[in-house]
Amino acid sequence: MEARDLRVSDAEKEHVGQLLQRAVGQGMLSLGEFTERMDTALAAKTRGELNSVLADLPGMQIAEEHRPPSPTPYNAGTAPSYQPPTHSPWHGHAGNAHGGPGDVVRGTMSTVSRKGPWHVPPKLSIQSKMSTITLDFTQAIMSTQVVEVTVDDYCSTISLVVPEEATVDLNGLDTVGGSANNKVRTGPPIGRLHVVVRGKVRFGSVTAKHPLGTSFRRMFGH
């Protein structure tokens, strides 16, 4: 089997995504081209398909540690052994089972959500790459009125869903080729929750919003 026909892993796709981001930063790709190539990279199944998005980018190639090993003939007398994964695309809280200071939500090419009666720590960190992250505070159990959220993101869609009386401050968020959309009150705090968001978003988006239907209930006095 040729190397171009080998299957690719999520780690390789993530590495190619980082190379494409670097190409955007160096002016070799527009944001539209970046999006198209990222879609191709995420859908790639083989080495040849993945390499195609880098073919015309000088100096952009997959690092040695991300390249697959050369295929070896199968020995019928030796059964392959299972090796547990060394990296999980989502790691839960870094504190106790109810969440504690320093809670971290991680996602790599994943869909991660926290909703329902989850315990919200005073400080929360989002570390994401090419993921969809949803933090729904509408039924959450709060330990403090003010929650600090620190974001370190590449190419993800992050949604903060808050109760009607909640306020959100996105002024401390730095965006690079991305967006920050605040669809709720910014302050001062008038309810049981005020979310302060800081950090950096690269080619991704952060949106603070109320649950679906809130505007209609407000319009009709419910």
Score class of each variant (00 low, 15 high):
residue 51 N to A: 13
residue 51 N to H: 06
residue 52 S to L: 05
residue 55 A to S: 10
residue 55 A to T: 11
residue 58 P to V: 08
residue 59 G to E: 02
residue 59 G to D: 02
residue 60 M to A: 12
residue 60 M to H: 06
residue 61 Q to P: 01
residue 63 A to S: 13
residue 63 A to Q: 07
residue 64 E to K: 02
residue 66 H to S: 05
residue 66 H to W: 11
residue 67 R to V: 02
residue 68 P to K: 12
residue 68 P to V: 07
residue 69 P to W: 03
residue 70 S to H: 05
residue 70 S to I: 02
residue 72 T to E: 14
residue 74 Y to D: 08
residue 74 Y to E: 06
residue 75 N to T: 02
residue 75 N to W: 03
residue 78 T to E: 00
residue 82 Y to G: 00
residue 82 Y to T: 01
residue 83 Q to R: 12
residue 88 S to M: 01
residue 89 P to T: 13
residue 90 W to K: 00
residue 90 W to R: 00
residue 92 G to R: 03
residue 94 A to C: 07
residue 94 A to D: 05
residue 96 N to T: 00
residue 96 N to V: 00
residue 99 G to L: 04
residue 99 G to E: 04
residue 100 G to Y: 07
residue 103 D to P: 00
residue 104 V to F: 02
residue 106 R to D: 01
residue 106 R to F: 03
residue 108 T to L: 06
residue 110 S to Q: 12
residue 111 T to W: 00
residue 112 V to T: 12
residue 112 V to E: 09
residue 113 S to E: 11
residue 115 K to A: 02
residue 116 G to I: 09
residue 116 G to H: 05
residue 116 G to P: 10
residue 117 P to H: 14
residue 119 H to C: 08
residue 122 P to K: 04
residue 126 I to F: 03
residue 132 T to N: 09
residue 133 I to H: 07
residue 133 I to G: 07
residue 136 D to A: 08
residue 137 F to V: 02
residue 137 F to Q: 01
residue 138 T to R: 14
residue 140 A to W: 03
residue 141 I to Y: 04
residue 142 M to R: 06
residue 144 T to N: 03
residue 147 V to N: 06
residue 147 V to Y: 04
residue 149 V to A: 05
residue 150 T to H: 08
residue 152 D to K: 04
residue 154 Y to N: 04
residue 155 C to F: 15
residue 156 S to Y: 13
residue 156 S to N: 08
residue 156 S to W: 14
residue 156 S to A: 11
residue 157 T to M: 13
residue 157 T to W: 15
residue 158 I to T: 12
residue 159 S to M: 12
residue 162 V to I: 09
residue 165 E to S: 15
residue 165 E to G: 15
residue 165 E to F: 12
residue 165 E to W: 10
residue 170 L to N: 13
residue 171 N to E: 05
residue 172 G to W: 07
residue 172 G to R: 09
residue 172 G to L: 07
residue 173 L to E: 15
residue 176 V to S: 15
residue 177 G to T: 14
residue 178 G to R: 11
residue 179 S to A: 15
residue 179 S to M: 14
residue 180 A to G: 15
residue 183 K to N: 14
residue 187 G to F: 14
residue 187 G to D: 10
residue 190 I to S: 13
residue 192 R to K: 14
residue 192 R to D: 15
